[in-house]
Design a protein around this nucleic acid. Structure first.
Ligand SMILES: [Mn+2]
Ligand SMILES: [Mn+2]
Ligand SMILES: [Mn+2]
Ligand SMILES: [Mn+2]
Lengths: 227, 227
DNA sequence: AATTAAAATTAGACACGTCTAAAAATATAT
DNA sequence: ATATATTTTTAGACGTGTCTAATTTTAATT
């Protein structure tokens, strides 16, 4: 088996690092600090430094000592491909296998590393070319285009704003289960009725019922205000 | 993170070794030689010895130096679980994602290592609890029961035998494509019309058409003779 | 500006899974 | 039974990815 020049098969670990760097650096590919990556990946800074060198070697990131890493074009394309796979698999698990939205992330963390272009294209078609995953996050296109939709944190909109709940910022299982418990779901209409200055808690109307939510909740819910 | 006594998460490599040992040792868990495993896994005998020790440590195989390894109950259960996953995923790829039966093995080699009991149960249900994979191989139950159905190699049945083609022994892509090319598929009715002693080739009727197949083909096709 | 604190890197180690080359055990042939 | 061939194991190495402890660089304080 001959491996030519830039035949690059990513290891699982490399893919995970790229994904973390992408999420931390945003769409503008800002430089990301060693510690930030270590935190997010629950690893040690020294491990991050090692990987930074390796990814830099491969042309996937720009790395300057003590200055952090930033994704190259190639690096961000790879990251987007992994994110695409992650979100398509999550969609599959929820739409086809009837998983709850709080159960799919861990499994998708594994499935996202399956290597087969054809598989993911077929899956995409099978799912009807979904644009968002179960948590409202956009699914990058095959080419790596990510459509960003207009949305704001519920905590950031003024009182009296009405809109549709379109996403969660925190998609950890406990938060998602909180939403289920309180009958809150993506697609629900939300209206901000009152905001408490002291603790940032909100009185909102959702599904025509009034409830009070803490600031902690409000900073993790995305809303698309009506018009 | 604490790992108690028999908390056993298999590595991908361990799973692959167990699977190879299972296939070589058959349902009776015969002892398997180091070289046989190395051949099948395209690795070196020294690597096999190393792994034999490790699997033995974990109670998955019985290993005595120079005598080969044989699966323990626990080892064969694990192997069967991996095989179950492999075959369910292959079925998914063919039935739901419209893959050809010669394309699925490589992808299933990856998917079989995804760890989630729930995922595989749901997938099983989603597929309608299939009993065979696309190559006619039985899918072990959740408990590891493998139904063996009555079938014989086409090369081994006497002239004039008629039956249904129920499986392929060799499920390599080239062989499967040979079948496609010649419009042969599982479920087809086959009748052995004539057998050439010299080279073992057969004249058969399949789908009401007569064709001649080499011994090489006949030793890779399973038939269930009509009663 | 000098000191202290925080962040990042390096040095050295280890587990895993693999390999090559050499040695030992077993099987085969004379 | 002895010699030869084959199989299997051991010894030692290497790449990957991780860690701890020590060092260096950069940032923040006084
Ligand atoms: Mn996720
Ligand atoms: Mn998601
Ligand atoms: Mn297969
Ligand atoms: Mn198969």
């Amino acid at each position: 088996m001959y491996f030519y020049g830039n035949f690059s098969t990513m290891t699982r670990s490399e893919e995970n690092y790229l994904k973390a760097i992408f999420h931390l650096g945003g769409l503008e590919h800002k430089a990301v600090s060693t510690n930030a990556i270590a935190d997010r990946m629950e690893t040690k800074p020294s491990s991050v430094t090692d990987m930074a060198k390796k990814l830099s070697e491969k042309g996937l990131v720009a790395y300057t000592k003590y200055k952090g890493v930033s994704l190259s074009k190639k690096g961000s394309q790879t990251a987007l491909s992994v994110i695409r796979k992650h979100r398509l698999w999550e969609t599959f698990l929820v739409d086809k296998l009837d998983f709850m939205w709080d159960e799919v992330h861990e499994i998708a963390e594994q499935l996202e590393h399956i290597q087969s272009e054809k598989l993911i294209d077929r899956l995409d078609a099978f799912l009807g070319f979904p644009k968002q995953d179960p948590h409202g996050d956009p699914i990058p296109s095959k080419k790596g285009e990510i459509q960003k939709e207009y949305k704001k944190l519920l905590a950031d909109v003024p009182v009296a704003t009405e809109g549709i709940c379109v996403g969660v910022k925190n998609s950890s299982a406990p938060f998602l289960r909180y939403m289920d418990k309180n009958s809150m779901a993506l697609g629900d209409t939300i209206e901000v009725l009152e905001k408490e200055e002291f603790d940032g808690s909100l009185q909102i109307k959702i599904r025509n019922k009034q409830i009070r939510i803490s600031n902690d909740i409000a900073t993790n819910l995305f809303i698309r205000p009506n018009e």
